[in-house]
């Protein structure tokens, strides 16, 4: 079957198998920032935004993405032109191996769009579905708060 969706602002048409996951489709189509970690909807390394909401793309059927707007980490910024959140992750030391980082960035992107002034607890809540074994989460949480402050013009 074929689906059409908007990925990182570009109109796309993908030929897919009916039982294919969004994760498999995106990786096959070259969005390699979407990571494969557990394929059981637990770890969150495959997080993308679907119509603005973070989803674990490993448990979303591709067919469900028909007509949807998808944002992957490739849609955030480039090494030469990082967005505020990406900069905050680097400046706060929130990136270690970086395998979970795309998922964290996308969960945080959704949070900050909805709530530009999140409390620490709200950040913790928003990042709950993203596992990380390297950082102990302290610096990713701090990075999201720092990015929020910067986006509000406080720093």
């Amino acid at each position: 079957m074929e689906i059409s969706c908007i990925v990182n602002g570009e109109k796309k048409q993908f030929k897919i198998e009916p039982d294919e996951t969004l994760l498999n489709i995106l990786r096959r189509e070259g969005y390699l920032g979407v990571k494969r970690g557990c394929e059981e909807g637990n770890c969150g390394v495959c997080t993308v935004l679907m119509n603005g909401r973070p989803v674990n793309s490993c448990v979303v059927f591709g067919a469900k993405a028909d007509g949807a707007e998808i944002i992957t980490v490739e849609g955030l910024g480039t090494p030469e032109n990082l967005n505020t959140l990406q900069e905050a992750f680097l400046d706060e030391g929130a990136v270690q191996c970086g395998f979970c980082t795309p998922g964290f960035l996308l969960s945080a992107t959704a949070l900050l769009k909805e709530n530009p002034e999140p409390s620490r607890e709200e950040v913790i809540e928003a990042l709950d579905s993203n596992y990380c074994r390297c950082t102990g989460y302290v610096k990713p949480i701090n990075a999201v708060l720092a990015a929020a402050r910067k986006m509000r013009g406080e720093e």
């Binding site: 990406q86 680097l90 960035l105």
Partner: peptide, 8 residues
Amino acid sequence: GPGLVCGK
């Protein structure tokens, strides 16, 4: 870092 936060 820059590559990692961009999902390169």
